[in-house]
Write a protein that binds this DNA or RNA. Sequence first.
DNA 1: CTGAAAGCGCTAACAG
DNA 2: CTGTTAGCGCTTTCAG
Lengths: 340, 340
Amino acid sequence: MSTPSHKITSAEVALRAGVSRSAVSRVFTPGASASKETAKKVRTAAEELGYRPNVLARAMVSGKSRIIGLVVAYLNNQFYPEILEKLSNALRERGYHVLVFMTSRTEGNIDAVVDGILGYQVDGIIAASVAMSSDLSARCEAAGVPVVLFNRTQDGDALSDVTTDNYGGGKMVAEFLLAAGHRKIGYIAGWEGASTQRDREAGFVEALEAARASLHAREIGNFVMEEAKAATLRMFSNDPPDAIFVANDHMAIAVMDTLRHKLMLCVPKDVSVVSYDDVSAASWPAYDLTTVRQPANQMVRETIDLLLGKIDNPNSPKRRIEIKGRLIVRGSAKVPEGWC
Amino acid sequence: MSTPSHKITSAEVALRAGVSRSAVSRVFTPGASASKETAKKVRTAAEELGYRPNVLARAMVSGKSRIIGLVVAYLNNQFYPEILEKLSNALRERGYHVLVFMTSRTEGNIDAVVDGILGYQVDGIIAASVAMSSDLSARCEAAGVPVVLFNRTQDGDALSDVTTDNYGGGKMVAEFLLAAGHRKIGYIAGWEGASTQRDREAGFVEALEAARASLHAREIGNFVMEEAKAATLRMFSNDPPDAIFVANDHMAIAVMDTLRHKLMLCVPKDVSVVSYDDVSAASWPAYDLTTVRQPANQMVRETIDLLLGKIDNPNSPKRRIEIKGRLIVRGSAKVPEGWC
DNA sequence: CTGAAAGCGCTAACAG
DNA sequence: CTGTTAGCGCTTTCAG
């Protein structure tokens, strides 16, 4: 392979292979018709020259960039790097690449961010745990760019989304805690703008009430470790609970640290802790969290199917996919008698 | 703003504003000359139509895509999500976006991955903790795409890189452990293909030898938690050490879990543990790791400066930047008398 | 300061 | 199966 000091075009390959530019194009276009012989000549020439088709030029004429924009808020919560990795791998297998757009979780600048994405002619957008103004989703719609919300729903909106059954998950946790005999149960909430937070809490509280119990204490942790610590301290400053449901694992880690190292309590002897997500740290022996698993692989698969489906068939209807979660019982909470 | 069902072109904006396409272009090109009045007409029309310049088309003619390709191996190690986030934010501030390419850590498929990147006409590539064949770096060179290696050096190669002083860091750890009175010191190695692994170990071992001590035990963890656990078990199966240096925090977490929960040892009473990186989990009370901090912000800044510098000025020379690390003393290792 | 014209690298329709 | 032709949306000389 020679190493010229500029980018190689299909014309140069064509010249060297003694064919036309279209021939070159066809050889590099899956499912286009070129004779075995032409293909070989072209591939050889391309190899020798170090030619790669220019994806951008291809995108311009075909209208498909094979780029998916991924909007993500905080990578601190281990759940999201895991998702990003899975998403990226699965997408690559289907011939797409991921352009990452970081934003803060609050609605403020997300519109600007997505606006920026649109300029890259992405074929689709996955918004992980962020909210979009309906104005903005309308623009995406208008631009013909499908959007799917990952791990977040948004009402009154025409966006597809993939979530787990957060309501059912919250309910499961309440039933588990109740069955273990807990009666003074606290809840540490995530950011209240998040549908995950709202649904988990709703399911949790309703199951409590269905059993004639009620929330003993409630504090807000906003999905942020520092705030979760402060919330825990507040919750234990007076008439402490004997069990806590924390809205996600990320905060639960901070909660457990605070319980043990600031309040000198034992988990689960003094207080049971249950949370949500089942990130990999949840299974580390130091925490050993009982938690509701969000089946990441399945969520990713559904998200991609939904998005690519919409790309292939732009007027496929909006869909909301809700996947059942499962309670993973570990050591951070008392286990009810005979629980299986 | 109206919401047409297709993508808006500069021609449409031009038409509505009663100017030429070039005028529109100039209004959206920073530092181009357009009269105040034209600018206003164009902006209004653009706003009403919901126009965004097509970055891809612009890239084709200008030759600059404003996309940086980021190659990253595993997001499991918390260090990388943190870096990705910082990188992405800093780059966006400078008008670039990040296209993420995931690969496995071993050299196998990385060439294919980078090859794919080149097709996107990225303006530059940041390779985080992955090795590139010299053949491939030659191709990037030939294509005029600068590459900088993040947290990894590669000898015999013309690539710029940004690392911390891993050799010096390893040395610091040895001195710290020795000063605390440890004499039976073990090392859990990372993947041996990594320069970080090699340099940390080299500095560590040489400082040990300089003090007429030597490595008491050595096992390989390959930067993978499961393997680090197995390595720990092996190391303690016979004549256990009283201190361990673990090549990074990610493995150290697994090592500590194993020490405490499988081997029933106390840290640091029975064994001191020191590691490398200072990811956020290192400061969680459950681990409270004494570790060498890699100054992420500074590394990111240098990386970006280096890369963008090379983009602006293609024949700026290759540079290797090495940043000093610092030992963050926490509770996972005995602290030498009078250490400050 | 502004418009007309040319062309970035590629693919898609059309003849042959 | 193959080459020719016409653009994708934009920026950029070059005249005016």
